[in-house]
Computed example of a mutant assay.
Amino acid sequence: MAVLISPALTDAAEAWLAHARALRGASEKTINAYRTDVLGFLAFMAEHHGGQQGLAPLARVGVSDMRAWMAHERGRGVSARSLARALSAVKGFYRWIAEREGFEPTAVLSTRSPKFQKKLPRPLAVDAAQAMIDRVELQAREGWVAARDVAVVTLLYGCGLRISEALGLTGAAVPLPEVVRIVGKGGKERVVPVIAPARDAVDAYARLCPHPLEPHLPLFRGVRGGALNPRAIQKVMEQARLQLGLPATATPHALRHSFATHLLGAGGDLRSIQELLGHASLSTTQAYTAVDTARLMEVYDKAHPRA
């Protein structure tokens, strides 16, 4: 299908991706997803109109063309969520190319995104999160591996880190200070406070680790000394959740949800939690805490005086 796209369109798409990478700090994973979505759209339009497409025909894409593309995507099994993501990428490209080429992109930008049920996060209860940390320690045969797993899990729950962020720490981070600078998605930096239990857990691991924790090497190591694979933490949490009778949603990322939800429940400010999590949008943070917000609204409804 890609052969249907003219060189001019391909170049325009790559120029937009470079713009998105530079201006928005999008990660390579995001850039690759944008590329797939936009080139797929352009290829469909080229085939839909019976031949190679240059830049000029982009301005003539109408409502019926957009409907045809969306019907084609759904027909080949693309989910509503994935189609909504693809449409968002196409709209981003069209805003950029329309401004550059001087045409009105109303038909594309006015296309409604398909509705889909957003999956609410499933944070662990406070006692379940603590039980998870305690149980994780019992999974490994070697003491230093157990200490490592506890340190990682404690960072996820105690600091709200993504697993990639925790495993991205180097030996230079030891001993952990009271605040650490984390480089998150898209290269965005944020400062995160480190609670005492997390500092203690990392110190305990550092004392027991048989591999030299050199400043330029990963802090968390696999059994053979290489960088720790995220799958190792996922697996140890799977074992622990089965023993505790917790649902399959009790994953490393659920601990990050739990961090946000428990902070909100303790009176934390949503904006501050947004900064701690490194979310670009407040709506993303609200999604993280939606379960707890629902609980708070239930309490409010019961307590509110009725006429």
Rank of each mutant, 00 (worst) to 15 (best):
L155W: 03
E104P: 02
L87S: 07
A89K: 06
V126E: 15
V126D: 15
R181L: 13
R81M: 11
E104T: 05
A173Y: 15
R95C: 07
Y94A: 02
E99F: 05
R100H: 08
G77H: 13
G160F: 08
K118D: 01
R112L: 11
A125Y: 10
G168P: 14
E73K: 15
V183L: 15
R74Y: 13
G77C: 15
A172E: 15
I182E: 09
G158C: 02
D149P: 07
C159S: 10
K118M: 07
R112I: 03
V78R: 12
F116Q: 02
V174K: 09
V108H: 04
P121M: 09
V90E: 07
V136C: 07
T170R: 12
P175M: 02
K91P: 14
M132G: 00
G158F: 06
L176H: 08
V78Y: 10
E101C: 12
A151W: 04
A172M: 10
V174W: 12
A173T: 11
V78C: 13
L167M: 05
H72E: 15
V108Q: 05
Y94G: 01
G77W: 13
E137V: 01
G92I: 04
E178F: 14
A166G: 09
V174S: 10
P177W: 14
P177Y: 11
C159R: 00
L83M: 14
V126M: 12
T170M: 10
A173P: 15
V150Y: 00
G75F: 14
V108A: 10
G168V: 00
A98D: 06
P123H: 06
R148M: 04
A89W: 10
K185I: 04
A128Y: 05
L167F: 09
A128G: 03
R162L: 02
W144I: 00
S82H: 14
S110W: 08
H72Q: 15
E73T: 06
I182A: 10
R112Q: 13
Y157H: 02
S113L: 06
S110G: 07
V179Q: 15
A125G: 09
V180Y: 09
H72W: 14
A173M: 12
A86W: 03
S79V: 08
L109M: 09
G184M: 07
L161M: 13
A147S: 08
G92K: 03
V153Q: 03
R95G: 05
L161P: 13
A172K: 14
L176R: 03
T170G: 14
S79N: 11
L156V: 06
K91F: 11
L87M: 12
G168W: 06
D127Y: 02
V145C: 03
M132F: 04
S164E: 08
E73W: 09
L176Y: 12
A172T: 04
L176F: 13
A89F: 11
A147Q: 04
G102F: 09
L155D: 01
R76A: 09
E142T: 00
L156H: 00
V183D: 06
F116A: 09
V126P: 10
A98T: 04
A172I: 07
S164Q: 02
G92Q: 07
V180D: 06
H72P: 12
A172F: 11
S110E: 13
G143I: 01
G160D: 06
Y157F: 11
P175Y: 12
K119G: 13
L109Q: 08
V126K: 12
P123K: 00
R85W: 09
G92A: 10
G168T: 07
T154G: 08
V78A: 12
A147D: 08
Q117T: 05
S110D: 14
K118S: 10
